[in-house]
Design a protein around this nucleic acid. Structure first.
Lengths: 314, 314
DNA sequence: CCTATTATGCTCGAACTGAGTATAATTGGG
DNA sequence: CCCAATTATACTCAGTTCGAGCATAATAGG
C-alpha cells in the first residue's frame, strides 16, 4: 500500500529541512525585441522566497513581481519544479525546492527596474534566432562539435543515436529546424559538454564552450524551458496579446510573434490566420509611422478568451 | 531590485516550516479500460513525502512507485505544484507543497496492489466518457444546473460570460465537445458549486452535487489535470505506447486512445495516421482472437523517439 | 513624378482531413 | 457446407487548410 500524506510521523524532522523559492522568467517584447528580466548583470533570473504569508504560489509570485518591477503581470504559467541535489550548497542538511514561472508583461519602461535588467534573450541562446536565417555558429561551431561528440561514443548504436538526436534538435542532415525544441537543444549541448554550465559541473576546464551568455546555477535551463513553452503556446493560445500595447498594427503583431518564435512567417498568411480566427478587431484608427502605406490599428478581442478555449497564432 | 535565492537571511526560520509531498496520477489502460491507481477505497491518490534521501523529485517518485506497486514507470511528467493554504491543516505554522506527477504504466496485474486500487477514471468524471455518445447526465443534470448558475449572476454581462464559458466547456448551444478541457469542466462545476468538494469547502450543505465519485482534498482536481494533460499529449507525442503491451493490433491501439480521449475515432483514418507516421512496424505475427478476420500484430518503433521529437496520435 | 516601402486582397496547387464505399478473412450457428 | 456476423484492410472523394506567390493600393521622400 502506498503512503498517504500526513500518514507518516517519522520523517517529520527530515522533511522540515526544506525551503521553497519562486523563480520568474519574465518576458516582454517591446517593438519586436524579445527580452527577459534579469538581475546581477544578466547572470540570474529574479527570484524570491515562498513564505507562509503568501496565499498561494501564484499569488506569491504575482505579489513580488508587480511590487518590485511595477509591471502588471498579464499571464502567468507554472513552468517546472525541481529540487536536484546539486542546487543546494549545504548538501545533506537542507533542500531547496525551486518553483519556476513564466510571466508575460506589456512594456519595458524602467519604472523600478534599473537599466540593463531586461536582456534580449538571444544573448543567452545565440543559436535560437533564425529570423535572418540560421546563425553562422550553428554550421561553424555547433554542428561540428556535436558530430565530434557523437563520434566519441563507444558503441556503434550509441553513435547513431547521438547523431540522430543532434540532427533532429538542430535541424541538420536535411531535418528541419523546429523552433520549439529550445530545451532539448540546450540539454543536448549540456550533455555534450558544450555549454559553460556543463564544464562548470564537471570541473572539465579544457573544453571551450559554444558562444552564449551563461547564467547562475541552472537558470539558463529554466530560461530555455520558458522560451520553449512560450513558443509552443503561441501556436494554440492567444498569449502574444499579453505582450502587445492596447492598439497595434498586424505587422507589429507579426514582429512580436517572430521575435518569440525566432523564425519569420509569411506576411499574408499570417494576416489570413489572425483575421479568420477573429482574434482582433479594428479600432478605426490608422497608424502613420509605418514607413509606407498607413496600416489599420487593431485591438485584441478579449471576448475570445471566454468563447473558445482554443486558437492561437501558429 | 529583486531578491535572489539565498540572499536573505531573515526569512530562514519562516521558510523552514515547509514540507513537500509527491502525488502521483498513475494511469494504465488494460484492454481499453482507463484506470488510475488509488488508495483508501478510491478516495485518494497515492502520495509520499519528498525527503533528503531522494536524488531528485522525479527519481523520488519513480523510486517509491516502482517499489510499492511493482510496475515500472514508462513515462513520467510533472503536472503541477501547489501550496494553497487550505490544503494544510495546521494553517499558520506549516505549509505543505504538493508536487503532482502523471505516470504511465503498462499493466494492471495485482502484483503488490490490492484489488480495487485501480479505478476506472470515469467513475470520478462520468461526464467525460463520450465513447458511446454524450452521457445523459450532461443534458439531464449538468446543463440545466449550469444555466441556473449563469442566470443567478447579478449583471447581464456576467450572466452572458458564465453561459459562454459553460457552453464552451460542455459543448452545448452548438459548440462542440472538446475532450481536452477536463480541468476547465471540473473547475467550472466547482465554481458553480456542483461538485461535492465545492460544497464541502463552502459548508453549503443544501446544494446537491452532480454525479461522480469524490476524492480527498483536491485530489479530483489533480486527477482532472492529469487526464487533461494526457488527452492533449497523445495528440502530439507517442505516449500511448507506454500503456500498450509489446505487441498489439491496431484496433487495440485505437481502443486505448479512445479510452483516454473519451471519444471514438474513425477506424480507417486512425490506421492511416498511425501508418503514415511510421510509428509502428509489423511483428510478422497475427492475432487470432479478434472475433473476425485475424489482425496483424504491430510493435512500437522505439527509434521514432530519437528521430523526431514530434508526432502523436490525434 | 518616380522609387522605395509597407499594406492588403486574391489565387492556386499541394497536403491533410473527415466520411464514406468496397472487399477480404475469419468464427459460429444451423 | 453455407450464411450471417464480425473484424481487417484497401481505396476514394470532396472539403479544408496551408505554403507560396502575384497583384494592387497608399503612403513618404527625393
Amino acid at each position: 500500500m502506498l503512503k498517504t500524506p500526513g500518514a507518516d510521523k517519522e520523517g517529520a524532522a527530515e522533511r522540515r529541512a526544506i525551503s521553497a523559492d519562486l523563480i520568474a522568467v519574465l518576458v516582454a517584447a517591446p517593438n519586436g525585441n524579445p527580452v527577459v528580466l534579469t538581475v546581477k548583470e544578466g547572470t540570474t533570473l529574479p527570484s524570491g522566497p515562498f513564505a507562509l504569508g503568501h496565499r498561494s504560489l501564484q499569488s506569491g509570485l504575482r505579489d513580488w513581481v508587480e511590487q518590485q518591477t511595477g509591471h502588471p503581470l498579464g499571464y502567468i504559467e507554472q513552468l517546472y519544479t525541481f529540487a536536484d541535489r546539486d542546487r543546494s550548497i549545504e548538501e545533506a542538511t537542507r533542500r531547496v525546492i525551486s518553483i519556476s514561472y513564466l510571466g508575460l508583461t506589456r512594456e519595458e519602461p524602467s519604472h523600478r527596474t534599473p537599466p540593463g535588467s531586461w536582456r534580449n534573450w538571444y544573448e543567452f541562446f545565440p543559436w535560437e534566432d533564425h529570423r535572418t536565417g540560421a546563425p553562422a555558429i550553428i554550421d561553424d561551431i555547433i554542428v561540428p562539435r556535436l558530430r565530434q561528440w557523437a563520434d566519441a561514443a563507444e558503441q556503434q548504436d550509441k553513435r547513431q543515436n547521438r547523431l540522430r538526436r543532434a540532427a533532429g534538435a538542430f535541424g541538420f542532415d536535411d531535418r528541419h529546424w523546429n523552433e520549439e525544441l529550445v530545451l532539448q537543444r540546450y540539454e543536448l549541448l549540456f550533455e555534450a559538454g558544450l555549454v559553460e554550465e556543463a564544464v562548470r559541473a564537471k570541473g572539465d576546464t579544457n573544453a571551450p564552450a559554444v558562444p552564449g551568455r551563461t547564467m547562475t546555477g541552472d537558470h539558463r535551463r529554466i530560461l530555455a524551458t520558458g522560451i520553449g513553452r512560450l513558443r509552443t503556446k503561441i501556436k494554440y493560445r492567444p498569449v502574444v496579446f499579453e505582450l502587445m500595447p492596447p492598439a497595434f498594427t498586424l505587422l507589429q503583431l507579426q514582429r512580436a510573434v517572430e521575435a518569440l518564435a525566432g523564425v519569420t512567417v509569411h506576411k499574408q498568411n499570417f494576416r489570413r490566420l489572425i483575421e479568420q480566427q477573429d482574434l482582433v478587431e479594428e479600432t478605426g484608427e490608422m497608424s502613420a509611422d509605418t514607413g509606407g502605406r498607413p496600416a489599420k490599428l487593431f485591438r485584441f478581442r478579449h471576448a475570445v478568451l471566454d468563447e473558445r478555449l482554443v486558437a492561437g497564432t501558429k
